[in-house]
């Protein structure tokens, strides 16, 4: 670990937050600047809580796990989507601008309704294992075998935390509200890979074979470049596009 020999004077951070409370008829979107002293190992989670606790108790934001696992705290940090909880202020300039993730319904200040969007996406794309005979599995008997490599490949795609960064980073999603985005397309590839899911490519085509699905993607690659979990989104979408193009044409 780096030992800092000379202790430098802490920076004074200027955090500009795009604020708006839709439940307050008198509120309109505006930027508000808060100044606070940077602490060692300070994350935006710590900084925002300090602002709320000592400066403005009405400030709204979402954190849950504060460990980069749950995907609650996606926001726009200096123009780019990212997870606030694991963003260290020392990696940012003194002036930090925070805004809510666009493309989602605003709840207030930095809090947006990603949950509603994601649930809608899940319902629309039916993101669960489909088995004709749901109760076929006999839980008293040995589980179905699966190749270890395949299980790991599925997990690789399962790592998505539905934080919404790919949607916020996507020019297509910004223009088309019905676009399911990388998060949705990735889930389709995840279930397509899973032998427990009995759906055929034609079934998947009926879910994503249009402009709101895989053919809507314009390969702007914001998803790939801003995914906090470094999921192989571009490769997955390309793969899905090939499969769906072959299925459709």
């Amino acid at each position: 670990m780096n030992q800092i020999a000379v202790k430098e004077a802490p920076r004074s951070l200027k955090i500009r937050i795009l604020r708006h409370n839709p439940h307050d008829p008198g509120s309109s979107p505006h930027l508000q600047t808060f100044e606070l002293e940077e602490a060692e190992s300070m994350t935006l989670f710590i900084a925002l809580n300090e602002i709320r606790q000592t400066m403005d108790p009405s400030l709204q934001f979402d954190f849950v796990c504060r460990a980069g696992i749950c995907g609650s705290c996606g926001m726009i940090i200096n123009g780019r989507p990212g997870l606030a909880c694991r963003t260290l202020t020392r990696n940012l300039p003194e002036c930090i601008t925070l805004a809510p993730l666009p493309a989602f319904e605003l709840i207030g200040d930095l809090s947006v309704n990603t949950g509603k969007w994601m649930r809608g996406m899940s319902e629309h794309l039916e993101t669960w294992v489909h088995q004709r005979d749901q109760d076929k599995a006999d839980i008293d008997r040995l589980e179905e075998r699966m190749e270890p490599d395949l299980a790991e490949k599925i997990y690789e795609l399962e790592r998505c935390i539905e934080c919404g960064c790919c949607i916020a980073a996507c020019g297509t999603a910004r223009m088309r509200e019905d676009f399911v985005g990388a998060v949705g397309l990735n889930q389709i590839t995840r279930f397509r890979l899973d032998p427990r899911d009995e759906r055929s490519d034609a079934d998947f085509y009926s879910l994503v074979g249009d402009e709101s699905g895989v053919f809507g993607c314009m390969t702007l690659l914001g998803c790939e470049d801003y995914c906090p979990k470094d999921l192989p989104l571009a490769a997955q979408i390309a793969f899905l596009r090939r499969r769906m193009a072959a299925t459709g044409s």
Partner: peptide, 18 residues
Amino acid sequence: RQLHRHMGAIRHPDTALW
């Protein structure tokens, strides 16, 4: 407007290429 706001904020190279 949405697209321009997006590109202005994110300054993402591949979006700019498009």
